[in-house]
Structures are given as C-alpha cells and as structure tokens.
Simulated scan of single mutants.
Amino acid sequence: MCYVYILQCSDDTLYTGWTNNLEKRIATHNSGKGAKYTRNRLPVKLAYYETFDDKSSALKREYAIKKLPRHKKLDLVQTMNISF
C-alpha cells in the first residue's frame, strides 16, 4: 500500500509527499530527517492522505497535487476532516 499525503508545517505551509509507511514517514519528518523543505518547519502534522495499490499511481497523484494551488490543497484537507 502506498500513500500520498499533505503535511501542515509549523509556518502553515503545506508539504506533499508519498510513502509506503505513513506513520514512519511522518515520524521521520518530525525527527528532522525527512525532506529538506520540512526540516526548518517542524513540527509537521498530517493534514490529508490518500491510499494507492501501487507506487506508480501514488507518484502520479503526488505530482497532480503538487501542481494544485494552495486553495485547492486546502479543499482536499477539508474533506479529510483532520483538524487543521
């Protein structure tokens, strides 16, 4: 199982990524060993995620989400019902 996720960073920016282990990846981000973008914006918190059966589908969706403007990403976050 693969996941595409959106994180809310401490400066209220959004980060989108993919992984095959969501809990471990968020912990890695919060330990400062995740993406360079999130290292100076800790802590991060999960705002949204989707599941996929394969890596290829997840990567395509990650790319599509990264191209969205911020307000569209926030629309996705609202559908997840995770407090933001």
Results as ranks from 00 to 15, higher is better:
15 Y>F: 09
47 A>M: 03
33 K>S: 10
67 K>R: 15
51 T>R: 07
76 L>Q: 11
45 K>T: 10
54 D>E: 11
36 K>A: 12
69 P>W: 02
32 G>C: 09
79 T>W: 12
70 R>H: 14
75 D>I: 07
51 T>W: 01
69 P>Y: 04
62 E>C: 08
16 T>I: 15
39 R>P: 01
62 E>A: 09
67 K>Y: 05
81 N>I: 07
22 L>I: 10
62 E>K: 11
34 G>D: 06
83 S>Q: 10
72 K>L: 14
68 L>W: 09
61 R>L: 02
23 E>I: 12
10 S>I: 08
34 G>S: 05
57 S>L: 09
42 L>P: 00
12 D>W: 10
75 D>L: 13
13 T>Q: 15
31 S>P: 04
35 A>T: 01
47 A>H: 02
80 M>W: 08
71 H>M: 07
58 A>H: 02
30 N>T: 11
2 C>L: 05
35 A>L: 01
37 Y>A: 11
63 Y>R: 14
5 Y>G: 03
33 K>C: 03
69 P>M: 03
11 D>K: 03
11 D>E: 06
6 I>A: 06
80 M>G: 05
26 I>V: 13
18 W>P: 00
23 E>S: 15
42 L>M: 03
5 Y>A: 05
18 W>R: 12
49 Y>L: 01
8 Q>Y: 06
26 I>E: 02
27 A>V: 10
48 Y>L: 07
33 K>W: 03
25 R>P: 00
27 A>N: 15
3 Y>F: 15
23 E>T: 15
83 S>P: 03
6 I>S: 05
9 C>N: 15
28 T>N: 07
7 L>Y: 08
43 P>K: 14
59 L>E: 14
29 H>D: 05
58 A>F: 02
34 G>T: 02
72 K>T: 08
78 Q>C: 13
19 T>S: 12
25 R>D: 02
83 S>M: 07
9 C>G: 11
10 S>Y: 08
75 D>V: 09
48 Y>V: 07
64 A>S: 14
20 N>R: 12
65 I>V: 14
45 K>Y: 03
9 C>I: 03
26 I>Q: 02
77 V>G: 13
50 E>Y: 01
23 E>D: 15
24 K>R: 15
12 D>I: 04
30 N>L: 10
44 V>K: 04
55 K>N: 06
42 L>Y: 00
